[in-house]
Write a protein that binds this DNA or RNA. Structure first.
Length: 200
DNA sequence: TCAGCGATTAACT
DNA sequence: GTTAATCGCTGAA
């Protein structure tokens, strides 16, 4: 297992990074307990040119400022007043691209994640949504702006390469307000995820 | 200060 | 597939 170095995220091709992260393992160390799993679903947000992005049009506010930093840090924000969503900031400085982690399949620290989410059984539903996986991993606004090569939040490459037909590509979820950009094919899902969903 | 809102979820059909 | 619930935070004043 190899922790992905922050330099990996400093590439300007955010679509490539979003696809590459499928099949890698996302981990967090909160309360001194490691929890995590394999990344099954991601979305690319293409900075200033993407109407679905918080940084569309070069918008800079205290919330979006973090996205203008050098790639390899986290962007965590609250959605609907209830759910924290985890992004990986990518690209170089002043290019506010980001990858939203939408789903993982939990593999480590299952008991702790069940406890955090008030669930009894472990299946794909434990962490199959962006708001759910942050809750399971114990992430919140305090984890905004953290480097992805530290020991709090990181992603590991375990030699599993997902490409070609193993990636389902489609439009992003919940961004209808983004007009024509809502249709862009920036959502990537592990094909294997379809089989996981069929096993209760 | 405070109105308005949302990169969702759960619980439906 | 559809839709209602929900509330802390952002951002403009």
């Amino acid at each position: 297992m190899t922790k992905i170095p922050v330099s990996f995220y400093q590439n300007d091709d955010v679509e490539l990074i979003a696809k590459s992260l499928l099949g890698s393992f996302l981990y967090s160390r909160v309360d001194n307990i490691i929890t995590g799993g394999i990344i099954t679903e991601t979305e690319a947000y293409k900075g200033v040119e993407d109407k679905a992005s918080h940084s569309y049009g070069g918008k800079r506010t205290s919330r979006t400022e973090i996205m203008y930093g050098l790639g390899g840090i986290s962007y965590v924000y609250l959605c609907y007043g209830v759910h924290y969503l985890l992004n990986v900031v990518t690209s170089g400085k002043n290019i506010p691209h980001a990858v939203l982690i939408r789903g993982i399949f939990a593999t480590d620290g299952i008991n702790k994640m069940l406890e955090r989410t008030d669930k009894i059984t472990h299946n794909y539903k434990l962490t199959n949504g962006p708001g759910k996986l942050t809750k399971a991993l114990g992430l919140n606004k305090l984890h905004n702006g953290i480097q992805f090569d530290g020991d709090v939040v990181w992603i590991e490459d375990r030699g599993l390469t997902i490409e070609g037909e193993d990636i389902i590509i489609g439009p992003r979820i919940g961004v209808d307000y983004a007009e024509e950009d809502a249709q862009l094919p920036y959502r990537y899902e592990l094909k294997y995820n379809n089989y996981i969903k069929k096993t209760p």
